[in-house]
Amino acid sequence: MAKGLVTFNEDICKGCELCVAVCPKKIIELDQSKINAKGFHPAHVVNMDECIACGNCAIMCPDSVITVEKL
């Protein structure tokens, strides 16, 4: 299975959780330990090893926060 690397432009994340909802591996959540400049908890990947680089999170992100690479 392909491995993926997901990076978030955390400063512009609005914490809407659409990426969280569509991730087939359920490895995205809002980072409760951070607050970005907009005042939201930004999304992050909890376990990158499980990412399959499907790109669903990036496709659904309305604010183009996410970049997905296949390793």
Binding site: G4, I12, K14, G15, C16, E17, L18, F40, A53, C54, G55, A58, I59, P62, D63, S64, I66, T67, V68, E69, K70
Partner: peptide
């Protein structure tokens, strides 16, 4: 390889749209 990244047709201005 890049699976998905922001299109160059959009600039860096942040959307005013509500979250989600």
């Amino acid at each position: 390889t890049i699976v998905y990244k922001k299109t160059k047709a959009l600039n860096d201005t942040q959307f005013h749209y509500c979250p989600g």
